[in-house]
Amino acid sequence: MFALLHNEWSKLWNKKQPWIFIGILIVISIGTAFLYTAFDTLEGAGTEGDGENWEVTLELENEQYAQTIAESDDEWEREFAQDRIEENEALLAAGVDPNETNNAVFLNEMIYVGTAFITLFAVILASTIVSSEQDKGTLKHLFVRPYERWQFLVAKFITVILFAAVMLVTVTAVQYLMGTIMFGTGSFSTPVVEYGMGGVITTTVAEVFPQKIGLYFLNMLMFVVISFSISILFKSQTLAVGIGIFILFGTNILQGFAPLLQDYFWYPYVFLPHMTLQSYVVTDEFIPGVGLGFSLAVLAVYAVLFLGAATAFFQKRDLV
């Protein structure tokens, strides 16, 4: 079994593909840091009382927003101002300087830029790792070896997961490095605020970052499971990559329909709405009564079904 994993791993790295993926991720991580600085200075220009006076600045801002609420006829404008006041108050209460940046804050705020690409690359790899061997005809030469077919699937699946982990480590490391170079070192216990559907949450990097990474990884795992299984069931890498990416974007679209659909009893039992696990960083329940535990259970059931069907099919099929 270890031999198979060893083989898959060495096959992977002998291709150009993973190097390209890693290269793109490094470029994106570096680019993120520069973009972040650009926006940071832009924002900083607006609020000149940087540094010691940030609390004063926020209070001044709030006064302006209060004036807007009093004067404006536009309901949307008033609502926006009200939200900003609440956010600023939360920042003041927590003692969090919104303009203070260090490597920990940068990493915490921008990690999801890189991970979006990790999911995409993991889906591509998961869809192609079995079907490309079928297309190239090497699968038959695997099947005539003294192993059970499911063992090849396990080895390939673990390879995808390991590669996703390598990508995640790369992005985290490069972003942390860039953060250190451009914003200086800071403590992981730096307080930060997270904005979610349920309002503003005050926390620290050390507390929220592991949650983000953990939930992201589980979420990505589910995308990998689906595209991996589909590529096996449909024997086509194009279809699998397509469906994987469709689900990637489809979950966002579906969430737009959530208010319409969430009253149906079956809605919580469909896997798609659960595939934004990261939102549990800031929300306890994505619809009333549906929390993280429920989401994980639903996803686990679907994952078992997908992988079970794919493995059963793979075990039995005739290779022509």
């Binding site: 096959k11 002998n14 291709k15 005809g137 030469h141 005539v144 003294p146 192993y147």
Partner: peptide, 17 residues
């Protein structure tokens, strides 16, 4: 299968290696 060596149709390889 441990006792078998096989070439089924054209032999196929990982051509990038």
């Amino acid at each position: 299968r441990a006792n078998i060596g096989a070439i089924v149709e054209n032999p196929t390889f990982y051509e990038y290696m």
